[in-house]
């Protein structure tokens, strides 16, 4: 039993197959919503699945002048990191499969590993577009990482815990959104930056650098990266819902809250023009200052009021 449990946890539920399916479904919801906002019908429900399956069947081209081990290994690393995070977050309203004090920090850094491996994959190719894409990915990572982390740590401070489950329970009785609105907005936008969604899609700006870091990937590599991103999206949404939107206690909570967040994300995606990379960086500098300001206020006032 002791062995079977973790295997199930890792391969099927909550990580593994389950989160992949949820990820693909959320990817479809996102695409469908954006299409609707753009006055289009949008893709069919199985579209992301068909895309991924097709990519797995495609020929995998490893370009010349590329380290094949990294080329193949990096997507797997990204997916592994993303799947690992799924073990620690309260998916579908259930407690994370594993938890320990400080798992919030681990999750945030595992999410960064996804981005890092994307950037490494970009710099591992001969294509100039990939290289610029990788540079932009890293630039963006460094600019949003700090505010994003700060924004997620806000709830942790008021809950007096670095453990996701504890914060989740605490959030069940306190809508942190109301006391830390700035943190919430920045966490949500930070997630968009992480996922490289418009308007923060400069790293894969189609009209400038084709597909950024992923330009040279075809077939499996591309599919795995897409899956990693899908999982990252689900995990990110869950985290924000758990931390800011009154916690996640049951499946209805989970779906309602994450889907509402996704609706917001899709709306933001279709409202804005792509930011130039230096505009993105500037934006995040202000965001970081804002979160810090919120922290100061929390620390000064919060000792009495919030705890």
């Amino acid at each position: 039993m002791n062995i079977l449990g973790p295997i199930i946890n890792v391969l099927f539920f909550p990580a593994g197959l389950f989160v992949l399916i949820i990820g693909l479904a959320y990817l479809w919801v996102d695409r469908k919503l954006v299409a609707q906002f753009q006055n289009r019908i949008g893709p069919r429900w199985f579209q992301p699945l068909a895309d991924v399956v097709k990519l797995f069947f495609k020929e995998e081209v490893v370009p010349d002048g590329v380290d094949a081990r990294f080329f193949v290994g990096l997507p797997i690393l990204a997916l592994a990191a993303a799947l690992t995070t799924a073990l620690y977050v309260p998916l579908v309203g259930l407690q994370g499969a594993y938890n320990f004090p400080g798992d919030l920090i681990v999750v945030v850094y595992l999410l960064s590993v996804v981005t890092m491996s994307l950037a490494l994959a970009g710099s591992n190719t001969a294509s100039r577009f990939s290289l610029i894409g990788a540079t932009r990915t890293l630039t963006q990572l460094f600019s949003y990482e700090a505010p994003f982390l700060l924004a997620l740590l806000g709830p942790a401070i008021v809950a007096h815990s670095w453990q996701i489950n504890t914060i989740n329970t605490y959030a069940g009785t306190h809508w942190i959104l109301l006391t830390q609105p700035i943190g919430f907005v920045i966490a949500l936008v930070g997630l968009m930056g992480k996922l490289e969604l418009p308007p923060f899609d400069a790293p894969e700006a189609e009209t400038e650098i084709v597909a950024g870091a992923m330009t040279d990937y075809s077939g499996r590599g591309l599919a795995i990266f897409q899956l990693a991103k899908a999982v990252e999206m689900v995990v990110g949404l869950t985290l924000i819902a758990a931390l800011y939107l009154g916690g996640i206690g049951n499946p209805i909570d989970f779906f309602a809250k994450t889907l509402i967040l996704l609706l917001f994300l899709a709306g933001l995606q279709s409202l804005f023009t792509r930011f130039r990379i230096e505009q993105t960086v500037k934006w995040w500098r202000y965001a970081a200052l804002l979160v810090l300001a919120q922290w100061v206020i929390m620390v000064v006032l919060g000792q009495g009021v919030l705890s």
Partner: peptide, 16 residues
């Protein structure tokens, strides 16, 4: 032009 700027929604609307 909107597409070049990454403003897909304007692209879709103007073409509609």
């Amino acid at each position: 032009a909107a597409h070049e700027a990454g403003f897909e929604t304007l692209f879709m609307y103007s073409w509609r």
